[in-house]
């Protein structure tokens, strides 16, 4: 059975996480091979994932309380 485009959009994460069964993976790949719109859909998802290092919410420059290092120094004593 061919997967419908709508099913494809629900299986994309499992496909990218390599969690589809062998048979579902084949069906998924067969569908993208023939359907430009789903191919575009999966590309859009991959583009988001490939850009996470740019998307990441700013990592606050750590203001580590100095007491933490005192605690470490005294940790073994």
């Amino acid at each position: 059975m061919m997967l419908a485009c709508r099913e494809m959009t629900e299986l994309t994460t499992d496909y990218l996480e390599r969690q589809l069964s062998w048979w579902d993976r084949m069906r998924f790949l067969m569908h993208i091979g023939m359907c430009g719109a789903c191919w575009e859909y999966v590309r859009g998802m991959k583009a988001v994932l490939a850009n996470f290092h740019r998307i990441g919410t700013e990592v606050v420059p750590p203001e580590v309380p100095p007491e933490l290092f005192d605690r470490f120094r005294n940790w073994k004593r």
């Binding site: 419908a4 719109a37 575009e40």
Partner: peptide
């Protein structure tokens, strides 16, 4: 049918 009516650009 589950096919795209409004596909991604």
């Amino acid at each position: 049918s589950g096919a795209w009516a409004q596909p991604p650009p």
